[in-house]
């Protein structure tokens, strides 16, 4: 009896991610949800520029590779091409989504574009070797903030869920993490809801996943998971920041 298997939507390939990186867990959760909702055949995924640039190889659904930050605009085109059929998700890092692609993110949310956004926040640029990200914490040491992020000089980190929650547009905004079994299960529930919302035509759903980058944080994989608890969650509290349908249910 098989009790645990690779999801069909996840390709049987070795991934290029570093040891201890949590991209692999998040990929798997997305693939499990695609399997469970039975939508692989009509799903189109959009990979970003950054560590997950080659995500197009790892999902078995049709995939598009986007220019840096432009995934929500491409997703808009794909969705509008056949809104009843296409299930569209973007998979983006913090530099991609919250720095170079901030305009595309905000406007896709404002339009309540019926897409699912998986936002992987590891507070650093991984692919290019550990530079300061829009979500790097105050004081965080990176290659381009070697004395620690000085908020007087380069400003404060951006809390994407809280910011987008100010808009009337988006349907669902949640922040989760994947640094323990309990949190992985919660993350999966949020990702599933974000896809289900799209199937139900409810609109823009974004799940921010606090993710570990041991390589560029200079930590062991185990210490990196603890760093999420100790440093990231206090700045980026977990939780649901917007759930318009649930709110409507409450009001009934």
């Amino acid at each position: 009896m098989i009790v645990f298997d690779r999801p069909h939507a996840l390709a049987d390939l070795p991934m290029h991610y570093c040891p201890g990186c949590t991209h692999g867990i998040i990929h798997r959760l997305v693939a499990e949800v695609i399997d469970e909702l039975g939508i692989e055949g009509r799903t189109i995924g959009i990979a970003p520029v950054g560590c997950s640039v080659m995500a197009y190889d790892y999902f078995t659904c049709d995939m598009i590779e986007a220019a840096h930050g432009r995934a929500p605009a491409i997703a808009t085109g794909v969705k509008r091409s056949d809104p009843d059929r296409h299930i569209v998700f973007t998979y983006q890092g913090d530099g991609d989504l919250a720095s170079i692609g901030m305009a595309e993110t905000v406007h896709a949310a404002a339009r309540n574009e019926n897409i699912t956004v998986i936002f992987v926040n590891n507070a650093i640029y991984g692919m290019t070797g550990g530079q300061m990200a829009p979500t790097s914490l105050p004081g965080q040491i990176t290659q381009t903030s070697p004395y620690g992020r000085d908020v007087n000089q380069c400003g404060y980190p951006i809390r994407v869920c809280e910011m987008l929650a100010q808009l009337d547009g988006p349907e669902y905004l949640a922040r989760v993490t994947v640094n323990s079994v309990k949190e992985v299960r919660r993350a999966k529930a949020a990702i599933k809801k974000a896809f289900q919302n799209q199937v139900d035509k409810k609109g823009f759903s974004l799940v921010e996943v606090l993710s570990a980058c041991p390589t560029n944080w200079g930590l062991t994989p185990a210490a990196a998971l603890r760093w999420i608890d100790e440093k990231m969650i206090p700045y980026y509290p977990l939780g649901v920041y917007k759930d318009r349908s649930a709110k409507k249910e409450d009001e009934k």
Partner: peptide
């Protein structure tokens, strides 16, 4: 579909998205 994009950059990427679907 007519959609006024947030920028020319977004508009050309929306074009990229539709074109990728063959239309």
């Amino acid at each position: 579909v007519f959609l006024q994009a947030e920028s020319e950059i977004a508009a050309i990427n929306m074009v990229y998205g539709v074109s990728a679907t063959g239309k």
